[in-house]
Simulated scan of single mutants.
Amino acid sequence: MELLVYLAGEIHSPWREALKEMAKQYELPLVFKGPMEDHDRSDNIGEEIIGKQPNAILKDEAASAINNLRTQIWLNKADVVIALFGENYKQWNTAMDASTAIALGKPLILIRPEKLHHPLKELSNKAQVTVETPEQALKALSYIFES
Rank of each mutant, 00 (worst) to 15 (best):
Met1Glu: 09
Glu2Thr: 14
Leu3Gln: 08
Leu3Asp: 04
Leu4Asn: 15
Leu4His: 12
Leu4Arg: 15
Val5Leu: 09
Val5Thr: 10
Tyr6Lys: 00
Tyr6Val: 00
Leu7Gln: 01
Glu10Gly: 15
Ile11Gly: 07
Ile11Lys: 02
His12Pro: 02
Ser13Gln: 12
Pro14Ile: 03
Trp15Phe: 13
Glu17Phe: 02
Ala18Phe: 06
Glu21Ile: 01
Ala23Glu: 04
Ala23Arg: 03
Lys24His: 07
Lys24Gly: 07
Gln25Met: 11
Glu27His: 08
Pro29Arg: 04
Leu30Trp: 04
Leu30Tyr: 02
Leu30Met: 08
Val31Arg: 09
Phe32Tyr: 11
Lys33Gln: 15
Pro35Lys: 10
Met36Thr: 15
Glu37Gly: 04
Glu37Lys: 02
Asp38Ile: 06
Asp38Ala: 08
His39Met: 11
His39Leu: 14
His39Gln: 13
Asp40Arg: 12
Arg41Glu: 14
Asn44Gln: 15
Asn44Phe: 13
Ile45Leu: 06
Ile45Thr: 02
Ile45Val: 15
Gly46Pro: 06
Glu47His: 08
Glu48Leu: 14
Glu48Pro: 00
Glu48Asp: 13
Glu48Cys: 06
Gly51Trp: 01
Lys52Glu: 15
Gln53Cys: 11
Gln53His: 09
Pro54Glu: 14
Asn55Tyr: 05
Ala56Asn: 09
Ile57Asn: 07
Leu58Ala: 05
Glu61Arg: 15
Glu61Lys: 15
Glu61Val: 14
Ala62Asn: 10
Ala62Gly: 11
Ala62Ser: 15
Ala65Glu: 06
Asn67Pro: 05
Asn68Lys: 12
Asn68Cys: 10
Leu69Thr: 13
Leu69Asn: 11
Thr71Trp: 00
Ile73Ala: 10
Ile73Met: 11
Leu75Ile: 12
Asn76Leu: 14
Lys77Cys: 03
Ala78Arg: 00
Asp79Glu: 08
Asp79Thr: 07
Val81Tyr: 07
Val81Cys: 07
Ile82Pro: 01
Ile82Glu: 04
Ile82Gln: 03
Ala83Thr: 13
Ala83Phe: 04
Leu84Trp: 00
Gly86Cys: 01
Glu87Val: 06
Asn88Arg: 15
Tyr89Phe: 11
Lys90Asp: 03
Gln91Thr: 06
Trp92His: 14
Trp92Leu: 12
Thr94Lys: 00
Ala95Met: 12
Ala95His: 11
Met96Phe: 15
Ala98Ile: 00
Ser99Met: 14
Thr100Cys: 01
Leu104Glu: 10
Gly105Val: 05
Lys106Ile: 04
Pro107Phe: 07
Leu108Ile: 04
Ile111Met: 06
Ile111Phe: 04
Arg112Trp: 02
Lys115Arg: 14
Leu116Lys: 04
His118Lys: 12
Pro119Lys: 06
Leu120Trp: 03
Lys121Asn: 13
Glu122Phe: 14
Glu122Tyr: 14
Leu123Pro: 05
Lys126Cys: 08
Lys126Gly: 01
Ala127Gly: 01
Gln128Ile: 08
Val129Gln: 07
Thr130His: 01
Val131Met: 05
Thr133Lys: 09
Thr133Asn: 08
Thr133Glu: 13
Thr133Ala: 10
Gln136Pro: 05
Gln136His: 11
Gln136Tyr: 05
Gln136Lys: 15
Ala137Val: 08
Leu138Pro: 01
Leu138Asp: 02
Lys139Tyr: 12
Lys139Phe: 10
Ala140Trp: 03
Leu141Arg: 02
Leu141Cys: 04
Leu141Tyr: 01
Ser142Asn: 09
Ile144Arg: 08
Phe145Val: 05
Glu146Ser: 12
Glu146Asn: 14
Ser147His: 13
Ser147Ile: 06
